[in-house]
Design a protein around this nucleic acid. Structure first.
Lengths: 166, 166
DNA sequence: CACTTAACCCACCAAAATAGTCGGCTATTG
DNA sequence: CAATAGCCGACTATTTTGGTGGGTTAAGTG
């Protein structure tokens, strides 16, 4: 189990999704604005989340993403696993080929730690996070604070106007 | 608490040190050969470990490194903290300035996880690892398997001989 | 139906972190 | 004094991370 900012982004986005997609799907543009993550980077993360069957994408106007399952069925460990490369790709690859095809000294230690972290994160679901007061407050604040940001380069006509002016 | 291969290298090297430095100091060249880590990279890691007061360096022939404390006083969390940059340098810096000076959605989640991991690793000492049968076996095997590797570029005269030949 | 929306896809890019290289200097020992 | 082995710093290659910019495709709406 690797822990990087990538996983953090994914979990944050999924939590935002869980919070806002109760009624209708949520666009990545909205999530990007609220959580200050770049839209294109979100697209990449959600491509993986979709392939891992954690979210559903709905195209067209009024579309966006919604959770593929119930918030109490989606745990944090699975989200992180979905966006990070296959957990064991690095060196100590699940089996003990860490040091020229044999186990490295600390193989067992890292296995134990991985289990520990995975178990902890598997025990936490989106539903549990949603219940927390503090998270609800923060989400509210984000809804208010978020100005309507327009991604200019996605609007060719605005962009060319701008170019005329400059 | 960040978990990277850097920390893994450090812990592996420290465990090797704990295992071999009972009688006399151990050279980084030996550790590099046994654990297949580059010598210069080890030097960098050990510079930090020394500054963090976890190892003592002894110069000159017969020198090398030995542990600064007893194996049962050195825990894994401290080793990792010694080689990785200050834990909170990234985004969610200890305090809640993750999203333009306010807490990001998942701030509390990561705090909880960090504590979890830290506690787990603080509870594991080098002494405990040394007791494990499997680790003893692996260490033995490494002692036998390790051929005497000579770092040629560290031996200018060998290097120039080689240049003459080629 | 044309138009807009927003997912989907891909190739490319910049900054950072990771891992390693190289060369030289310094203390210690024999 | 010569060999050893720590110490130090600058430089480099590779990988990961995060982000751009250009599409295409499916689905709703006037």
């Amino acid at each position: 189990m690797r822990l990087t900012t990538k996983g953090r982004y994914a979990v944050t986005a999924m939590l935002d999704l869980a919070f806002h997609s109760q009624i209708k799907p949520v666009t990545l543009t909205d999530i990007a604005a609220r959580q200050t993550i770049s839209l294109s980077y979100l697209e990449q993360l959600f491509a993986r989340l979709r392939r891992a069957n954690m979210v559903k994408g709905i195209r067209g106007p009024g579309g966006g993403y919604s959770l593929a399952g119930k918030p109490d069925e989606i745990n944090i460990a699975d989200i992180i696993a979905a966006v990070d490369e296959p957990i064991d790709a690095t060196k100590c690859g699940g089996e003990a080929n860490c040091q020229n095809e044999k186990a490295c000294l600390t193989h067992d230690l890292w296995m134990g730690l991985s289990d520990q972290i995975r178990d902890y994160l598997k025990g936490i679901t989106l539903a549990q996070l949603l219940e927390k007061h503090r998270i609800q407050e923060i989400a509210k604040r984000q809804d208010q604070d978020t100005p309507q940001v327009i991604e200019i380069h996605r609007h060719p006509e605005l962009m060319s106007n701008l170019n005329d002016i400059l």
